[in-house]
Computed example of a mutant assay.
Amino acid sequence: MSAALVGTIAVIVLAMGFNYTNGFHDAANAIATSVSTRALTPRIALGVAAVGNLVGSFLGVKVAATVGKGVIAHATLPVVGAGLVGAITWNLVTWYFGIPSSSSQALIGGLVGAALAGGVTVLWAGIWEKIIKPMLVSPLVGFALGFLVMLAVYWIFRRGHPGKLNRGFRIAQTLSAAGMSIGHGMQDAAKTMGIVVLALVAGGYHGEHDKNIPLWVFFLTAAVLAAGTYSGGWRIIKTLGRKVIDLGPAQGFAAETAATTVLFVSAQYGLPISTTHTITSAIMGVGATKRLSAVRWGVAGNIIIAWVLTFPAAAAVAALSYFVYSRFA
């Protein structure tokens, strides 16, 4: 077995490790509101999320292309591997403390940090236009859309019976949670597929200008993400579902609907945004329709601090990982 093949397999295994942590780390994105409002039981919600991620992975080819070709140029296997180590480390740290940080941001940060340490060209213009700008704008859009959807729900159902409305919105949340899960697959599964293709190109097993992603990459990535999702992420589910605001079925439906819309639209343009940023900001927007004090801004502030730290922290760990590798390779 050649060294290139061994290295390629090792990086793909790391990519699947990141994919698995992404699954249990970001499972909360799709199901926290449904679980907290008791629209779905935890295990059923996780099953819905796993199936949705599987379906969504086949719809996110444009996002995969952006991650695979728009972050760094002429990647090497050690650089890709070190980038994944940085992303995995940050995912585990934030999961342990129950902080809903962005796996996507950690992945991009890890790749950039490893590339800088390894002397590989970083495509800053592409990162700014297709990654950083959408990641900055998407939470604002999520907040505004969550606010507007919740206002619309209040107005349309202003004369409805509360008990009947709650039952109806619990049923509706099954659909909105499924949509959120598909959107998560379109974004997060696609990002991992882009990394696998990047590793295949670096190892010489895929053409640099070949636009077709091997079919086995779809199935492997989706299956591992689904397994990670089904294993759950209860610490983060508790933070998103109960600590930011007190969600009812109508609020949960509005937040999921707003976030799903943002995820679907961005995926159609190949923009890799954070599902975590999007659903969290949508929940805040929904909460703000009651009154600004309904949102626990202290918890929200801690989440925002984690967002700010994610990119540099993952980049630093990735750079250190590359440095260690280069000394012992």
Rank of each mutant, 00 (worst) to 15 (best):
L225H: 05
G194M: 09
R158G: 00
R43Y: 14
I237P: 03
V224K: 07
G83V: 08
V55P: 00
A15S: 11
P78A: 11
P78G: 13
L116S: 06
G86H: 09
G163L: 07
A329Q: 10
D210E: 12
T257A: 15
G160M: 03
T275R: 03
T8W: 09
A152H: 04
A319L: 09
G207M: 11
K133P: 00
A223C: 05
I132P: 00
A189R: 01
K69P: 00
A4S: 14
T221R: 06
P134N: 02
I273G: 04
A282M: 05
A300K: 10
G185A: 11
P272W: 06
V299C: 09
S176G: 10
I213T: 11
A315R: 06
V48T: 11
V120A: 10
G204K: 05
L292C: 00
V286H: 04
I44Q: 05
A87E: 04
A255Q: 06
A255E: 05
T276N: 08
N166E: 12
I156S: 04
V286S: 03
R159Y: 12
W307N: 04
V299L: 10
A282K: 05
R327N: 10
V197K: 11
V67C: 09
K133A: 13
A75L: 08
L263S: 04
G47W: 06
I88H: 03
G163S: 10
T41M: 08
T289F: 10
L123T: 01
G113R: 08
R296E: 11
L46I: 07
P100H: 08
V201G: 03
G23H: 05
P78T: 12
F219N: 01
S326D: 09
L309N: 01
M186N: 09
A199G: 12
I303A: 08
Y20W: 15
A189T: 14
A73D: 13
S57C: 07
S104Y: 12
G60L: 07
Y269I: 00
L175M: 13
V61P: 00
V201T: 12
R235P: 01
L240W: 01
V35T: 09
A294P: 00
V112R: 07
T257V: 13
V299R: 04
A222W: 10
